[in-house]
Nucleic acid binder design. Structure first.
Lengths: 224, 224
DNA sequence: ATGGATCCACCTATGGATCCCT
DNA sequence: AGGGATCCATAGGTGGATCCAT
């Protein structure tokens, strides 16, 4: 049974708190699913399970997961101290766009305007089925966070719009980085180089460094 | 030929600037010494060479290297960006002392009151003989640096004076740490445990983390 | 092709160990 | 034993690669 979409933030947050402490096995049973042995071939499975458990609507579309209330869901894998183990994917980098886009109109800004963070135990030693959800956090970037995100985005997008995508590495960006987002390194797509000539390049995505997610979680939860 | 001790800071600094850019081979020739093939079995050789070149006096005694003018010499190995590759030894940790010593009277404070930093190229790819000295820096800790050093020292010394030396790891201390300082791990020395009972323990030394030396060098030299 | 993400080989940082000289 | 320090194995971080569902 899949719940209906929540109609208010309060309703969503209440449901999310209701999931805190439950294991993936419990959640999977409720939703009539089978827990994979490992995440090797099901990397996105917990995220999609939690989406369904909370009544998310925008399956695989560039829309907030909870369209009615404009909230994006992010599952964040945490270690035993509650610190993120991985970076967080935000959205794809639009290739071939030369339009001047302002930060406020960017997909990164829109996606991050309001996020429900669901921590999930991700210690390799804990079997997948036994991993528990943590307490959720409904978050918007504060002015400092917005400033650094914007600065990173503008620096990266300048390179992107100049066609210098292949000169961007994941080392760029203080908290927001660009990394490959593809099935593999041979999954090339058409774009244009700095002179406008056709070029094949790897699809890329924007990611939040785990230092950034660690800091925003720490704003609300005391970490040891 | 070994120069006489400098009698003023200005004289010392002028000599040190005069060494900037010279190679260890040049310096060794001047002082009638042979450059070792590697530092493996001569770890302190460059430091002692530079001591002599500058006319240091306090060989192996707990005194400033330049006693007349109260200046300590520290050779700091740097990478191609001018950043320290290693931590910096300050002095030994006095074992068995239970006396209440104030920061101002501590050996760490005294040693660091006035330091001549001599950067030395330390890229493994560069043969020892060809490594060059950098521009010197005559330094005293500013109020911030003093504050953090003092905080670290007091925290560490509290553990030391409680006889908890064996509970201290190099992870303690923001910029000042305690690490082994011995011929090897079997070179134990007598001290007393937290109850005053006799105990053998490794000799330890105070070291400055390279983050700290990097920051103080950056206060004066622009780093890329 | 977008959205859900994790995998893992490599690299770097460093804590504990060690070496020579006086 | 104090002063001159570096060595090096290993833990940790992360950049590029990859996988499934829709």
């Amino acid at each position: 049974m899949t719940p209906s979409p929540p109609t208010t933030e309060a309703e969503l947050l209440a449901r999310a708190h209701g999931l805190a402490g439950t294991t993936l096995a419990q959640l999977a049973t409720t939703l009539n699913q089978t827990v994979p042995q490992t995440l090797h071939h099901a990397k996105g499975w917990p995220g999609q399970l939690i989406e369904r458990a909370l009544g998310a609507t925008a399956a695989s579309r560039p829309e907030p997961d909870f369209q009615l209330i404009g909230v994006e869901l992010k599952t964040v894998p945490v270690n035993r101290l509650g610190r993120p183990r991985e970076s967080t994917y935000v959205c794809t980098v639009a290739l071939g766009e030369r339009d001047e886009v302002h930060w406020e109109d960017s997909l990164v800004c829109k996606k991050l305007r309001r996020v429900l963070w669901m921590p999930l135990e991700a210690e390799p030693a804990i079997p997948l089925a036994q991993r528990r959800l943590g307490a959720p956090l409904l978050w918007s970037p504060d002015s400092e966070e917005t400033a650094v995100l914007r600065r990173d985005w503008e620096e990266l997008m300048e390179l992107v719009s100049l066609g210098r995508l292949d000169q961007i590495s994941a080392r760029h960006g203080e908290v927001l980085q660009i990394r490959p987002k593809a099935a593999n390194a041979r999954a090339l797509r058409k774009t244009t180089d700095e002179n406008g000539a056709p070029l094949l390049t790897l699809p890329r995505g924007f990611y939040l460094r785990s230092l950034f997610t660690a800091a925003l979680l720490a704003r609300h939860f005391v970490l040891s």
